[in-house]
């Protein structure tokens, strides 16, 4: 069988493609690669069509054996790459012979590396996506040692050996994320927007694909006892539970929630946040509520 076999699964290695956005009305989280731009680029360099399924690692990489000749690109969080113990290039197409052992080591910066194989991976799919969802359990389970994942047909024309377009700047020890204020800013005390602009939060160890838990100055509500009827959660939402410590939701976020969302970050910030390690400092650059909403 043409497949990739897991020899070392690392902390958490999952199958990820573009996910299953658009099923939120059935309580299905979007999932998909947490750092979409890195996942997309790794696939592109491996010569894959848009949307191919790749492996997403967490902090300490993974080791795999391939059962046929295949081109692989290790991208996302930079890490040492070896094939049968010999150093190989990160961020570039590497040709593997059948039976070779590829190791993606611990991330030097960032959290999530992507292993894109030419032909793409074809694990179990669910609602049109091969993505593992940690919240709902949809898609393939997180990978364990001994798992094999089918490989798609080898591509007739291997990709040209190109390079990662720019040296990966990685994640600085402090991230500044643009935060579009709303929808529930009014649930917070008037100084909350100022607090967001000057506060510094630290990414907690209790962070995962569902969300980054942030520790810092509490964001206080006008009425801590008030209950918000459950409402849809947009991708990139910064939700504030009663203790005031915000959660920046990630790819596997719940589709509805009953705590107010004070602001929402865009796709680029979501990708950057997905590479933020525990201990990373986060600041926000609040963007005011748009005029159309203020006049409504």
């Amino acid at each position: 069988m043409s497949a990739v076999e897991i020899l070392r699964a690392g902390v958490l290695t999952t199958c990820q493609d573009a996910g299953r956005p658009g099923w939120g009305h059935l309580a299905v989280p979007p999932s998909g690669a947490a750092d979409l731009p890195s996942w997309r680029l790794a696939n592109q360099l491996a010569g894959n069509p848009t949307g191919a399924c790749a492996l997403e690692t967490t902090l300490n990489g993974c080791t795999v054996r391939t059962h046929r000749d295949v081109t692989v690109v290790v991208g996302g969080a930079p890490c040492p790459v070896t094939v049968d113990g010999r150093p190989e290039a990160w961020g570039q197409p590497v040709k593997l012979k059948a039976g070779s052992v590829l190791d993606a080591g611990p991330a030097e910066v960032g959290v999530r590396s992507y292993l894109a194989f030419s032909g793409g991976l074809h694990p179990k799919s669910s609602l049109g996506s091969h993505s593992t969802c940690l919240l709902s359990g949809l898609g393939p389970d997180p990978l364990r040692v001994g798992d094999t994942i089918p490989l798609g047909p080898s591509l007739a024309h291997p990709p040209l050996p190109t390079q990662w377009p720019a040296p990966w700047a990685g994640v600085s020890p402090e991230l500044v994320l643009k935060l579009h204020l709303g929808p529930r800013l009014e649930w917070f005390r008037p100084d909350a927007a100022a607090e967001l602009a000057r506060g510094v939060w630290t990414v907690s160890e209790h962070s995962n694909r569902i969300g980054l838990r942030l520790e810092g100055p509490p964001l206080r509500r006008v009425d801590p006892a008030a209950e918000l009827p459950s409402e849809g959660i947009a991708s990139g939402s910064l939700q504030v539970p009663p203790d005031g410590q915000p959660i920046l939701f990630g790819a596997d976020h719940p589709t509805t929630g009953g705590y107010p969302v004070i602001g929402v970050v865009g796709p680029q910030a979501q990708a950057a946040a997905a590479q933020a390690r525990p201990g990373t400092k986060i600041r926000f650059a609040p963007i005011p509520i748009p005029q159309w909403s203020r006049s409504a």
Binding site: H180, S237, V264, W292, S293, A296
Partner: peptide, 10 residues
């Protein structure tokens, strides 16, 4: 209509 990020409305 309330703003829910650069591409969303609640």
């Amino acid at each position: 209509p309330l703003p829910a990020g650069p591409r969303g409305i609640l």
